[in-house]
Design a protein around this nucleic acid. Structure first.
Lengths: 127, 127
DNA sequence: TATAGACCCTCCAGCAACTGGAAGGTCAAG
DNA sequence: CTTGACCTTCCAGTTGCTGGAGGGTCTATA
């Protein structure tokens, strides 16, 4: 499998697959005589795995750890759970931050008449 | 006021104030003979304004627009409201995304025993 | 007056995770 | 043998700063 086929099958842009190869996250199985990256089913599974992990917002380093655990059949699920819990905490924190922003901003937006006059509670709040 | 005093008064790092000057977001009032940036009360108010706007997650370009409106006493509040509404929509969208992530991930984390055995619904989900 | 230390300056590099593009090599079909 | 779709590497840009090097300035004190 050349890179574009692998990328399509993994649901990733070619550029991203090349990037993952560059940073040693998912290496191609081998290189052709012409230097083309080639991917087999195992490498493809890793690409899919990374795409899903990234969708959860796991950083590249976390993906590396998860990928290691994915391939380590003697892993302890506790290690995986710890990484996932950390990410869950981050998400929860971000949600709280966004909730606070949303509350304040939606209140301001609602109280702004939004007409052609200059007085505006949003600007007042910021200034 | 030199930059460090202005930065402290605005609640921003010196580096950030210098950065805002570099990109023309908040220019210093003037320069001293030695080339030091100096800030007066008006420039300071702009710095504070930008800090608050950034805290809402407005991008630099949005800050530029808001700052223009802030200084335009003949503005229409509709313009401000539109910018704020866009940001509110972004926040709402992000919240929905995070909610979906949270739901799925918390479910996975809960269903993972987290012991020393390898089977793990989190890894299964990703793989 | 000398000097120490706290300021200030500019410029360059790096962060995360790609993305776009230029310049050029390779491959398969017609 | 040419065309066009691949592939390669390398460099630059994205967002909003942040850190650091290398060097100038200012003020207080000895």
């Amino acid at each position: 499998m050349n890179i574009s086929e692998a990328a399509k099958a993994a649901g990733l842009p070619v550029k991203t697959v090349r990037y993952y190869a560059d940073i040693g996250l998912v290496s191609p199985t081998s290189r052709s005589d012409a230097g083309y990256r080639t991917y087999d089913a195992t490498a493809l599974r890793k690409l899919v795995f990374v795409r899903r992990a990234r969708a959860f917002g796991f950083g590249i380093d976390a993906c590396r750890e998860l990928l290691d655990l994915y391939q380590d059949h003697g892993r302890s699920s506790a290690e995986v759970k710890q990484i996932a819990s950390r990410r869950l905490d981050e998400i929860t924190l971000k949600q709280r931050e966004l909730q606070a922003l949303h509350d304040t901003l939606s209140h301001l937006v609602q109280s702004c008449r939004g007409d052609d006059r200059p007085d505006c509670p949003i600007i007042d709040y910021l200034g």
